[in-house]
Amino acid sequence: MLICLPPSEGKTPAPDDGAPVDLTALTAAELTAHRETVLDALAAVSARDDATTALKVGASLADEVARNTTLRTAPTAPATDVYTGVLYAAAGLGDLDGDAAARAAADVRIFSGLWGVVAPADRIPAYRLSMGVTLPGVGGLATAWRPHLDAALAQRAAGDVVVDCRSAAYVSAWKPATTGDLAADWVAVRVVRETDGVRTAVSHNAKHTRGVLTGHLLRRAGSPPSSADELLDAARELDGQVIGTEVGTGLSYRMVEAVLDDPATRRGPRTLELVIS
């Protein structure tokens, strides 16, 4: 099992006493050289007068962008403490211990426009950079990272199930092979709400539900799934459970069922649809 997660949009700064980032200590050391290149390009852009425009963020985030100029000396914390969005709160990655923590270290990879990919315990500073940005001297980040991520991840994914919880920009940076010697069972996780028999896509609840699935896959007893069918069986263990609370209304929602599409209709990943109500 390889669980692919997006970063959270917002980042929580590390405590002031955190050590600075050690690029050579991050997971996938073969990415170090390209991380250096992206880090330097980001610092240069972030020092410009038009930095917020170049990085495609609003003026209200100017302080976060300015922080990009000192990332080499900024304090770090585990990625699970820096990424604190809805998905991460639901997954509870920072609360894992024992076998679940070991499984997360081996099986969870968080994609990043700056670092390429990191593991949950990797120590990083808070930063502001999305995968959809183009940096001078680097180019579009998804395109620039693609060969490096393929070299780092293709062998790890081969013969395993890839549980893809990423958004489109991060999917474009790395796609597992689905044919050939390095083929993986690639499964994208989609969340829909069922109301009066009609199923529609959701946003906030989708992030939360993907987080719940991630936490479940790491904490459940037994071996992690290694195929799409085994992933479906594991997801169905959540059927009927209350898994979240609606923002605003305070009403709870539950998992209705998990459904895996027919591989004969596949173009790219198969789809694991998680139905909530």
Rank of each mutant, 00 (worst) to 15 (best):
186 W>D: 02
90 A>P: 03
13 P>Y: 08
79 A>G: 11
53 T>L: 12
62 A>T: 10
232 L>S: 05
255 M>D: 12
179 T>Y: 04
270 R>I: 03
262 D>I: 06
144 A>Q: 03
219 R>T: 07
6 P>N: 09
74 A>W: 05
77 A>N: 08
12 T>E: 14
67 R>H: 11
116 G>H: 03
8 S>L: 07
52 T>D: 05
103 R>K: 10
109 R>T: 00
250 G>S: 09
89 A>W: 00
49 D>W: 05
39 L>Y: 09
45 V>P: 02
257 E>L: 12
22 D>W: 04
72 R>P: 04
268 G>V: 04
4 C>T: 10
28 A>E: 11
5 L>Y: 00
94 G>E: 10
155 Q>W: 06
210 R>M: 14
157 A>Q: 08
196 D>N: 14
266 R>D: 15
24 T>Y: 06
129 L>C: 08
142 A>N: 01
163 V>P: 02
131 M>Y: 01
207 K>V: 10
118 V>P: 02
201 A>P: 10
23 L>V: 12
165 C>S: 11
172 S>I: 03
169 A>W: 01
5 L>I: 08
75 P>L: 07
81 D>C: 06
51 A>K: 01
252 S>W: 15
37 T>N: 15
77 A>T: 09
273 E>D: 13
189 V>G: 02
180 G>Y: 01
91 A>Q: 02
209 T>Q: 09
156 R>N: 12
28 A>S: 12
271 T>A: 15
85 G>N: 07
241 Q>F: 15
234 A>M: 06
157 A>G: 09
263 P>M: 14
159 G>I: 05
141 L>I: 06
162 V>P: 00
73 T>I: 05
21 V>L: 10
66 A>G: 10
230 E>D: 11
61 L>T: 05
195 T>A: 15
25 A>E: 13
125 P>R: 08
2 L>H: 01
132 G>D: 14
175 K>H: 12
175 K>Y: 09
199 R>N: 11
93 L>V: 02
54 A>M: 09
169 A>K: 04
232 L>Y: 04
263 P>T: 08
192 V>G: 03
276 I>V: 13
119 A>N: 07
170 Y>E: 08
11 K>Y: 10
143 T>S: 13
261 D>W: 04
203 S>N: 14
276 I>W: 04
59 A>D: 12
174 W>N: 03
146 R>F: 05
161 V>M: 07
219 R>N: 05
61 L>K: 06
212 V>Y: 02
24 T>W: 06
110 I>Q: 01
40 D>A: 13
178 T>M: 07
79 A>K: 02
163 V>A: 10
179 T>E: 13
276 I>S: 03
209 T>Y: 06
247 V>F: 11
28 A>T: 03
106 A>W: 00
47 A>H: 07
104 A>Q: 02
223 S>T: 13
134 T>M: 13
223 S>R: 09
83 Y>A: 01
271 T>V: 15
172 S>C: 09
29 A>W: 11
180 G>H: 08
223 S>F: 04
